[in-house]
Protein backbone atom coordinates (compact mmCIF):
# COMPACT_ATOMS: atom_id res chain seq x y z
CA UNK A 1 0.00 0.00 0.00
CA UNK A 2 2.70 2.42 1.01
CA UNK A 3 4.71 1.49 -2.03
CA UNK A 4 1.78 2.21 -4.35
CA UNK A 5 1.16 5.68 -2.88
CA UNK A 6 4.86 6.42 -3.03
CA UNK A 7 4.96 5.29 -6.65
CA UNK A 8 1.83 7.27 -7.57
CA UNK A 9 3.32 10.40 -6.00
CA UNK A 10 6.59 9.88 -7.78
CA UNK A 11 4.90 9.40 -11.14
CA UNK A 12 2.44 12.22 -10.66
CA UNK A 13 2.23 14.30 -13.83
CA UNK A 14 4.45 11.94 -15.78
CA UNK A 15 2.79 11.04 -19.06
CA UNK A 16 5.07 8.23 -20.13
CA UNK A 17 6.14 6.38 -16.99
CA UNK A 18 2.73 5.51 -15.59
CA UNK A 19 2.13 2.45 -13.39
CA UNK A 20 0.81 0.77 -16.56
CA UNK A 21 3.97 1.26 -18.63
CA UNK A 22 6.21 0.42 -15.66
CA UNK A 23 4.20 -2.78 -15.43
CA UNK A 24 5.13 -3.51 -19.06
CA UNK A 25 8.79 -2.85 -18.32
CA UNK A 26 8.62 -5.14 -15.30
CA UNK A 27 6.98 -7.95 -17.30
CA UNK A 28 9.61 -7.34 -19.95
CA UNK A 29 12.39 -7.68 -17.39
CA UNK A 30 10.90 -10.99 -16.20
CA UNK A 31 10.55 -12.31 -19.77
CA UNK A 32 14.08 -11.27 -20.73
CA UNK A 33 15.56 -12.83 -17.59
CA UNK A 34 13.67 -16.08 -18.07
CA UNK A 35 14.57 -16.29 -21.73
CA UNK A 36 18.26 -15.55 -21.21
CA UNK A 37 18.66 -17.69 -18.10
CA UNK A 38 16.85 -20.74 -19.49
CA UNK A 39 18.58 -20.60 -22.87
CA UNK A 40 21.99 -20.24 -21.22
CA UNK A 41 21.29 -23.12 -18.87
CA UNK A 42 20.05 -25.42 -21.64
CA UNK A 43 22.87 -24.23 -23.89
CA UNK A 44 25.46 -25.04 -21.23
CA UNK A 45 24.04 -28.52 -20.66
CA UNK A 46 24.12 -29.19 -24.41
CA UNK A 47 27.55 -27.65 -24.90
CA UNK A 48 29.50 -29.88 -22.48
CA UNK A 49 28.95 -33.20 -24.29
CA UNK A 50 29.18 -31.42 -27.65
CA UNK A 51 32.52 -29.87 -26.71
CA UNK A 52 33.88 -33.28 -25.68
CA UNK A 53 32.60 -34.76 -28.92
CA UNK A 54 34.02 -31.86 -30.90
CA UNK A 55 37.50 -32.59 -29.53
CA UNK A 56 37.19 -36.28 -30.29
CA UNK A 57 39.73 -37.92 -32.59
CA UNK A 58 36.95 -39.71 -34.46
CA UNK A 59 35.83 -37.61 -37.39
CA UNK A 60 32.37 -39.16 -37.48
CA UNK A 61 31.76 -37.63 -34.05
CA UNK A 62 33.55 -34.31 -34.42
CA UNK A 63 32.49 -33.47 -37.99
CA UNK A 64 28.69 -33.27 -37.44
CA UNK A 65 29.26 -31.13 -34.35
CA UNK A 66 31.60 -28.91 -36.33
CA UNK A 67 28.91 -28.48 -39.02
CA UNK A 68 26.36 -27.58 -36.35
CA UNK A 69 28.55 -24.95 -34.67
CA UNK A 70 29.63 -23.61 -38.07
CA UNK A 71 26.03 -23.11 -39.21
CA UNK A 72 24.81 -21.53 -35.97
CA UNK A 73 27.83 -19.28 -35.57
CA UNK A 74 27.88 -18.41 -39.24
CA UNK A 75 24.32 -17.10 -39.56
CA UNK A 76 22.67 -14.17 -37.76
CA UNK A 77 20.59 -15.06 -34.71
CA UNK A 78 17.74 -12.98 -36.14
CA UNK A 79 17.56 -15.25 -39.19
CA UNK A 80 17.64 -18.37 -36.99
CA UNK A 81 14.79 -16.92 -34.93
CA UNK A 82 12.73 -16.16 -38.06
CA UNK A 83 13.31 -19.62 -39.46
CA UNK A 84 12.33 -21.36 -36.24
CA UNK A 85 9.34 -19.11 -35.49
CA UNK A 86 7.82 -18.71 -38.96
CA UNK A 87 9.33 -21.79 -40.55
CA UNK A 88 8.02 -24.29 -38.02
CA UNK A 89 4.40 -23.77 -39.13
CA UNK A 90 5.21 -25.16 -42.58
CA UNK A 91 6.06 -28.54 -41.10
CA UNK A 92 3.19 -30.84 -42.05
CA UNK A 93 0.86 -31.69 -39.20
CA UNK A 94 2.64 -29.52 -36.65
CA UNK A 95 -0.65 -27.86 -35.64
CA UNK A 96 -2.04 -31.24 -34.61
CA UNK A 97 1.08 -32.43 -32.82
CA UNK A 98 1.59 -32.36 -29.06
CA UNK A 99 4.27 -29.66 -29.47
CA UNK A 100 1.88 -27.09 -30.93
CA UNK A 101 0.66 -25.65 -27.60
CA UNK A 102 4.30 -24.76 -26.93
CA UNK A 103 5.29 -23.67 -30.44
CA UNK A 104 2.14 -21.58 -30.74
CA UNK A 105 3.53 -19.19 -28.14
CA UNK A 106 6.36 -16.89 -29.12
CA UNK A 107 8.40 -17.82 -26.05
CA UNK A 108 9.36 -21.40 -26.91
CA UNK A 109 10.48 -20.86 -30.51
CA UNK A 110 12.61 -17.97 -29.23
CA UNK A 111 13.96 -20.17 -26.43
CA UNK A 112 14.87 -22.91 -28.92
CA UNK A 113 16.62 -20.47 -31.26
CA UNK A 114 18.58 -18.84 -28.43
CA UNK A 115 19.53 -22.19 -26.89
CA UNK A 116 20.84 -23.63 -30.16
CA UNK A 117 22.75 -20.43 -30.82
CA UNK A 118 24.41 -20.13 -27.43
CA UNK A 119 25.13 -23.88 -27.35
CA UNK A 120 27.09 -23.52 -30.59
CA UNK A 121 29.23 -20.68 -29.24
CA UNK A 122 29.72 -22.33 -25.86
CA UNK A 123 30.77 -25.59 -27.54
CA UNK A 124 33.55 -23.78 -29.37
CA UNK A 125 34.64 -21.92 -26.20
CA UNK A 126 34.88 -25.21 -24.26
CA UNK A 127 36.55 -27.03 -27.11
CA UNK A 128 39.28 -24.42 -27.18
CA UNK A 129 39.74 -24.79 -23.43
CA UNK A 130 39.82 -28.60 -23.64
CA UNK A 131 42.38 -28.47 -26.44
CA UNK A 132 44.59 -26.18 -24.39
CA UNK A 133 44.99 -28.73 -21.58
CA UNK A 134 48.72 -29.27 -21.23
CA UNK A 135 49.96 -32.67 -22.39
CA UNK A 136 51.85 -33.17 -19.17
CA UNK A 137 48.67 -33.28 -17.10
CA UNK A 138 47.13 -35.90 -19.37
CA UNK A 139 50.32 -37.99 -19.36
CA UNK A 140 50.42 -37.80 -15.58
CA UNK A 141 46.83 -39.02 -15.41
CA UNK A 142 47.71 -41.88 -17.76
CA UNK A 143 50.68 -42.77 -15.56
CA UNK A 144 48.28 -43.06 -12.62
CA UNK A 145 46.29 -45.54 -14.67
CA UNK A 146 43.23 -43.35 -15.22
CA UNK A 147 40.88 -44.33 -18.01
CA UNK A 148 39.92 -41.82 -20.76
CA UNK A 149 36.61 -41.03 -19.08
CA UNK A 150 38.18 -40.55 -15.67
CA UNK A 151 40.92 -38.33 -17.11
CA UNK A 152 38.25 -36.23 -18.80
CA UNK A 153 36.20 -35.94 -15.62
CA UNK A 154 38.94 -35.37 -13.06
CA UNK A 155 41.70 -33.63 -15.00
CA UNK A 156 40.65 -32.11 -18.30
CA UNK A 157 37.16 -30.69 -17.64
CA UNK A 158 37.82 -28.98 -14.27
CA UNK A 159 40.79 -27.07 -15.62
CA UNK A 160 39.09 -26.44 -18.96
CA UNK A 161 36.07 -24.86 -17.26
CA UNK A 162 38.33 -22.50 -15.38
CA UNK A 163 40.16 -21.49 -18.52
CA UNK A 164 36.86 -21.00 -20.33
CA UNK A 165 35.32 -18.84 -17.62
CA UNK A 166 36.30 -15.35 -18.87
CA UNK A 167 35.25 -16.16 -22.46
CA UNK A 168 32.03 -17.72 -21.22
CA UNK A 169 31.24 -14.61 -19.18
CA UNK A 170 31.40 -12.62 -22.40
CA UNK A 171 29.07 -15.09 -24.08
CA UNK A 172 26.52 -14.59 -21.28
CA UNK A 173 26.59 -10.83 -21.80
CA UNK A 174 26.35 -11.23 -25.58
CA UNK A 175 23.33 -13.46 -25.07
CA UNK A 176 21.61 -10.85 -22.90
CA UNK A 177 22.13 -8.25 -25.60
CA UNK A 178 21.14 -10.61 -28.39
CA UNK A 179 17.87 -11.37 -26.61
CA UNK A 180 16.73 -7.86 -27.58
CA UNK A 181 15.63 -9.24 -30.95
CA UNK A 182 12.97 -11.43 -29.31
CA UNK A 183 10.42 -8.66 -29.74
CA UNK A 184 10.32 -9.18 -33.52
CA UNK A 185 8.31 -12.34 -32.87
CA UNK A 186 5.89 -10.40 -30.61
CA UNK A 187 7.54 -11.39 -27.35
CA UNK A 188 7.16 -8.59 -24.79
CA UNK A 189 10.70 -8.66 -23.47
CA UNK A 190 12.46 -5.50 -22.29
CA UNK A 191 12.94 -4.23 -25.81
CA UNK A 192 9.35 -5.17 -26.65
CA UNK A 193 8.15 -3.06 -23.73
CA UNK A 194 10.31 -0.16 -24.90
CA UNK A 195 8.94 -0.45 -28.43
CA UNK A 196 5.41 -0.47 -27.07
CA UNK A 197 6.01 2.70 -25.06
CA UNK A 198 7.80 4.28 -28.03
CA UNK A 199 4.95 3.53 -30.42
CA UNK A 200 2.25 4.57 -27.99
CA UNK A 201 3.71 7.83 -26.72
CA UNK A 202 6.03 8.70 -29.64
CA UNK A 203 8.82 9.13 -27.12
CA UNK A 204 11.89 7.31 -28.46
CA UNK A 205 14.41 8.85 -26.07
CA UNK A 206 12.54 8.16 -22.84
CA UNK A 207 11.46 4.67 -23.90
CA UNK A 208 14.85 3.46 -25.11
CA UNK A 209 17.12 5.28 -22.64
CA UNK A 210 15.18 3.79 -19.76
CA UNK A 211 15.46 0.30 -21.17
CA UNK A 212 19.15 0.83 -21.95
CA UNK A 213 19.70 1.69 -18.28
CA UNK A 214 18.03 -1.58 -17.26
CA UNK A 215 20.24 -3.56 -19.65
CA UNK A 216 23.29 -1.80 -18.22
CA UNK A 217 22.31 -2.82 -14.68
CA UNK A 218 21.83 -6.43 -15.79
CA UNK A 219 25.19 -6.40 -17.55
CA UNK A 220 26.92 -5.09 -14.44
CA UNK A 221 25.29 -7.77 -12.32
CA UNK A 222 26.54 -10.48 -14.70
CA UNK A 223 29.97 -8.88 -14.88
CA UNK A 224 30.36 -8.85 -11.11
CA UNK A 225 29.08 -12.38 -10.77
CA UNK A 226 31.74 -13.61 -13.19
CA UNK A 227 34.42 -11.48 -11.57
CA UNK A 228 33.52 -13.11 -8.26
CA UNK A 229 33.68 -16.58 -9.82
CA UNK A 230 37.00 -15.83 -11.45
CA UNK A 231 38.44 -14.57 -8.17
CA UNK A 232 37.49 -17.80 -6.48
CA UNK A 233 38.19 -20.31 -9.21
CA UNK A 234 41.19 -18.71 -10.83
CA UNK A 235 42.90 -17.71 -7.57
CA UNK A 236 45.88 -19.89 -8.46
CA UNK A 237 46.62 -17.75 -11.53
CA UNK A 238 46.85 -14.49 -9.64
CA UNK A 239 50.32 -13.01 -9.41
CA UNK A 240 51.54 -13.68 -5.89
Amino acid sequence: MELTTWLTDLLDGNLIFTPQTLGYYWDGLVTTSQLVFLSLLAGLVLAIPLAIGRSSRHRWISLPIYVYTYVFRGTPLLIQLYIIYYGVVFVDGIQESIFWPLLREAFYPALIAFTLNTAAYTTEIFRGAIKATSRGEIEAARAYGMSNALTMRRIVLPSAFRRALPAYGNEVIFMLHASAIASVVTLMDLTGAARFVYARFYAPFEAFLFVAAIYLCLTFAILYFFRFLEKRLLAHLKPA
Binding site: Y86, V89, Q95, R104, A106, T186, G192, R195
Partner: peptide, 18 residues
Protein backbone atom coordinates in the same frame (compact mmCIF):
# COMPACT_ATOMS: atom_id res chain seq x y z
CA UNK B 1 -2.27 -9.25 -26.81
CA UNK B 2 0.45 -9.91 -29.37
CA UNK B 3 1.85 -6.91 -31.18
CA UNK B 4 3.32 -7.18 -34.66
CA UNK B 5 5.63 -4.78 -36.43
CA UNK B 6 3.86 -5.29 -39.77
CA UNK B 7 0.37 -6.36 -40.78
CA UNK B 8 1.97 -9.09 -42.89
CA UNK B 9 3.58 -10.83 -39.91
CA UNK B 10 0.26 -10.72 -38.09
CA UNK B 11 -1.61 -12.33 -41.00
CA UNK B 12 1.05 -15.03 -41.25
CA UNK B 13 0.47 -15.93 -37.59
CA UNK B 14 -3.30 -15.82 -38.09
CA UNK B 15 -2.91 -18.30 -40.92
CA UNK B 16 -0.69 -20.61 -38.89
CA UNK B 17 -3.23 -20.75 -36.04
CA UNK B 18 -1.20 -18.80 -33.49
Amino acid sequence: VRRYATADDMLLDMESGR
